[in-house]
Each structure stands twice: as C-alpha cells, then as structure tokens.
Design a protein around this nucleic acid. Sequence first.
DNA 1: TCAGAACCGTACCGTACGGTACTGTAAAGA
DNA 2: TCTTTACAGTACCGTACGGTACGGTTCTGA
Lengths: 217, 217
Amino acid sequence: MPENTNHSDEFTPRQQAVLESALGLLVAGGEKALTTAGVARAASCSKESLYKWFGDREGLLAAMISYQASKVRTFTDDGAAMDAQRYRAYLLAFAKDLLNVLAGDVSLALNRLAIGQASQEGNSLAQLLIERGRKRIDQRAGALLEAGKRRGLIHYDDRDDTYHVLYGLIVRDLHVRMLLGDAGARQPEQFEELAEAAVAKFFALYAAREEERVAGV
Amino acid sequence: MPENTNHSDEFTPRQQAVLESALGLLVAGGEKALTTAGVARAASCSKESLYKWFGDREGLLAAMISYQASKVRTFTDDGAAMDAQRYRAYLLAFAKDLLNVLAGDVSLALNRLAIGQASQEGNSLAQLLIERGRKRIDQRAGALLEAGKRRGLIHYDDRDDTYHVLYGLIVRDLHVRMLLGDAGARQPEQFEELAEAAVAKFFALYAAREEERVAGV
DNA sequence: TCAGAACCGTACCGTACGGTACTGTAAAGA
DNA sequence: TCTTTACAGTACCGTACGGTACGGTTCTGA
C-alpha cells in the first residue's frame, strides 16, 4: 500500500495524478476544454483507462469534485480558554480562509462546472459539490460559533441562521461576481480588510452584552 | 411602428417572441437544450432567420440577456417626506424583490448560462449580465440608501460598501445555493421572514443615533 | 522464462450540433 | 400583375466529441 497523503485513498496515486491534470485543464479552459481526449493527452493516459477508472465523463467530473474536496481544515473546539481577543482572531482567520477558498482557481472552476450542469436533470454534480465541499465549511463555522457561545462571548438563538448571517457579512455578493468573472470582485489583497469589516459587524450584532457574558446566559 | 411595451425596442415583436421561446427552452433544459435547431423549432422560425437576426449562437444568447434585462423597476427619490416606518417598508420591499428576482426561473437560468461560459476566453456574456442586470439593482439600492441618509434615517460613510453589506444580509449564500439547484435555498415562502431579519440587522448596524437624526449629520 | 494483467497510443464509429444553401410561399409595393 | 422582400422548412456539410476496440509495450509474479 503506498504512503497515504492527506487525500482520501479513494483513488490510486496514478488516478490522482490524472485528476490533477483534469483539474488543470478545467481551470485553464472551462468545461468546454475538458474533453476526454484532452484529459487523456494531458495526463498521458489512454482514454480506455479513463473509462475503466471513472466509468464515463460524468464519473470523471464527480471524481474531480470528490478528490478536490479533501483540502479544507476543520475547526474543533479543544476546550481551551479563550478571551474575546483570541476569539476575534479565530473568526478573522475563518473569514479570510473562506474568502480565499472561494476565490481559488479550482474552487471557482468546479463551482462553475456544477452550476452549469445544475439545470439539466439529475444535477448530481451540484449535489456532490454541496455535500463534499460546502458542508465542511459549514461544520467548521458551526463549531466556531458554538465555541464562542459556550464561553459567553457571543449570543444567538439559531446557530445555522447566525452562521448564514456571518457568511453574508463576509462574502456579500463576491462569490457570484467571481463566478461571473468580474475582476473587481476577485482582489485577494482586499480580503483582509473585508474580513475585518465583516467580523466587526458580526460582533456588533451578536456580541454578548456585559451582563450576559458574566452570567453566561 | 408597433405599440411599445416596456421592453426595449431593440428587437421586433417577432424577434421578441423568438427570444421568449428561447428563454423557455433554456429554463426547461439548461444550456445543453438550447440548440439552434431547437430554438427554431420551438419558435417556428427558420435557422436562417436566427442567424440573420442574431449573427450566431453567441449573439442569440446575448440577445436573450439584453431582452430579459428590461424588467427591473428602479427607485427614484421623489423628495417626499419619509419617516423611519415608511423607510423601513421601502427597504423591506427592496429585500423581498431582490430575493424574488434572484430566485426567478429565468434569472437563475441566465446566471447559470453566463457562469458556465465565464471560464473560457471572452466572457462577454457574463459581462453583459453584470452590466445589464446587476447594475440596475445596484442603482435602485444606491438611490434608496442615499434617500435614507439624506433624511437622517441611516448613517454611513461609503455608500457602495454599505450596499454590499445590505446585500449580504439579505442574500447570504442563498444565490449560489439556488444556482447549484439546492432546493432548500429556494423557498419563496421564507423570503418575507428573511427580508425582515435582514432589514432589522441592517438598521442595527446603520440606523442613525438620535442626536444624529436630529442634527442631520 | 512464460503468462497475464495493466495500460498507452491510436484508430475508429456514431451522433449531435453549429452554420450554410436552397426551395417554396406569402405579403408588400410599384 | 410583376417584382422584391422576408421568411419557413428542410436538406446538407464539416467538425468535434463521447465512447469502444485493438495492437503493442511494460511490469509482475509464478
């Protein structure tokens, strides 16, 4: 058994290399450029092997999504003490990470791919993207929010609703605009500033008031 | 000259009927289903006419976007007196309209189309969608914000930034999830509630404090 | 050393689609 | 009535792509 990277062992190293090639093609030229012959040429493998490994073109696309999805770290509450200052830093890091993930070449390409297919019947690709990609981020954020509530730093009733507000404050309309290729939306040098503004507003809305923080309510 | 509807007179009635057919096909089956032969059949016109009117397939797609874009009403400040109550209602209406527009069949289909094309070179379609569709909404919101500031109801420094915060509070991640076909995101019966929550938070962040409102600063 | 598996490269097939050309026809205008 | 324009309908062409088949090569294990 070959050494395992942090990627899932769902694919052999050779297959992973092929998937990496395919992702490169997708990023470079969009779905139109992702032909089976093109992938085979770029990855120096035969079309026959592609069909053997992934079934058909759809299977290849699904494999690309599954493969890529294994690159998001997740936050787990270690129970350590945390003051408001430190918690704010965590939220800030989450916000910056989120913006950077969404602005990534591969993320944008895969989201474009899935969205392009979402209209026709059996939008399994989009479903897969939501399941494998989106939900991990949701989990990390959820854990972060709960950690803050547990320590009395923030206050909320509905965790998911609160998360969506945080998401909206951070991402605004940037994701869709990036997906549309609007260059004005994709400026990573502004992400720091955007993240800080978002976190500040989030605290303005959800920071526990003094008496709550003391009482732990 | 035929009677002018509120649509642009960029296209003849016959052409508008064809574009309507094409939009129907796009909504029903996504881009894959939008073949020139299919449009011709659905609209009972010849392919030759299609190419005469719109140049090529790309031109047809652009025409569909241009044609569809002319269905957003815009807010203009009539200078009338407006109290906080009334202003809040305006914002609420904007929020609900925004959610309903974004959740519309045709809007989703066109955004999917443009995003699907955004990766390959010359993403003119996406650019067109931003220019013709997005910017109108931006204008309406901008006017709304300025009206509120002029009357001392809200306070902000950067209008566009403030608008983007409002947008994020309203839309959250719903647009992308709707584009991905996530049924959980597309529930118009919840839009009222979402709009109210967003407007409430917006006021929490931007409502002018009493002394400002009086001083008009 | 031999058998078999895995796999690359390429040739091949069928089909679907963008785009063009041609024919027939109905309306408009002189 | 003749001519021109606009258009529907259809046939046609070239190409690109998904998917399959096959020959040749390398690697593995007995």
